[in-house]
């Protein structure tokens, strides 16, 4: 079993549970109450030589990034990490290649409470968990594979080249979401956020931004929406295609002007370029 999964499960023991056989109640006991799973087995995962873990440094702080090379492992892990809330049977769409999520760190809570006499632990638990940063981690979970399900031939690359570029795009895309959530708390506009994240990803991978590549990802051909990722973010992809294409040209101009800039430094300008006047609904709380 990969040491990446072993380390991840040590911090998030719900990964020892199997979403195909364990109940939501079992997940809630582990995730919400900090109980130890009955068995600590990772046999339901395959492990992969490409599994890796890093602590990424970003302008918004450090972020734990885990890549799981096996698609089934990625889906099992994501299902387990969200099972307490969404249920273990939630289906991970085939189109989903990454996730940014919050997870509770019970080992940190237990370690902290162990410093206190037993009779004081309930009160200290309340105090310690009143501060979100004490026990809530942000985790980026990545899978591998062609980005946005676009194949290598369409990109004019070899399979290996495209896989490497896909990994880079996906990594920078998710980290951009982390940065935006931390630096623009409560400001969520789905299409804008995806255009910005893809733009940073493409620039990081290729050193430039080509709107035609982004249109491939979104499912826009000859100025029309033909089905693709854009439909994941809006109920009216056809109507918004023109506005999206205009935003992509603004992004291209900005990236050209700021060639050589570190990718994440482009974010503030890209947030303006990608603004299409979507209905921005403020979230109720900050999402780190």
């Amino acid at each position: 079993m990969s040491s990446v999964l072993e380390r991840l499960a040590a911090d998030y023991p719900q990964l020892y549970l199997n979403p195909d056989t364990d109940s939501q109640e079992a997940y809630r006991r582990v995730v919400l109450r900090g109980e130890e799973p009955e068995a600590k087995s990772l046999a339901h995962y395959r492990g992969d030589p490409a599994d890796r873990e890093e602590i990424a440094d970003t302008p918004a702080g450090q972020v734990r990034v885990v890549t799981l090379g096996n698609r089934q492992d990625f889906e099992l892990a994501l299902r387990s990490l969200m099972a307490a809330k969404d249920g273990p049977e939630a289906v991970i769409p085939e189109s989903q290649g990454a996730a940014m999520l919050t997870v509770f760190n019970w080992p940190r809570i237990h370690a902290h409470l162990a410093l206190y006499p037993e009779e004081e632990r309930a009160a200290e638990f309340k105090r310690f968990t009143a501060v979100r940063e004490n026990y809530v981690d942000m985790l980026v979970l990545l899978s591998r594979g062609p980005y946005s399900h676009v194949d290598a031939a369409t990109m004019g690359e070899t399979e290996e080249e495209w896989l490497g570029h896909s990994d880079a795009i996906r990594r920078f895309h998710e980290l951009t979401h982390v940065i935006c959530r931390r630096q623009y708390p409560g400001d969520v506009a789905p299409i804008r956020d995806e255009l910005v994240a893809d733009a940073v990803g493409l620039y990081a991978a290729y050193g430039c931004f080509d709107p035609e590549t982004e249109k491939l990802f979104l499912g826009i051909r000859d100025g029309r929406y033909v089905g693709g990722r854009l439909g994941n973010y809006t109920d009216r992809p056809e109507e918004l295609t023109g506005a999206v294409c205009a935003a992509l040209e603004r992004i291209r101009a900005t990236v050209e002007k700021q060639a050589g800039t570190e990718p994440f430094r482009l974010i503030p300008a890209l947030m303006k370029d990608a603004d299409m006047g979507e209905t921005k609904t403020q979230t109720r709380r900050n999402t780190p």
């Binding site: 189109s95 989903q96 919050t102 026990y135």
Partner: peptide, 18 residues
Amino acid sequence: MELDFDKLEQVSGGGQLQ
């Protein structure tokens, strides 16, 4: 001692709308 699952969030990934 129980945590609030409202603080568990998947905040990106492409499947949020569905």
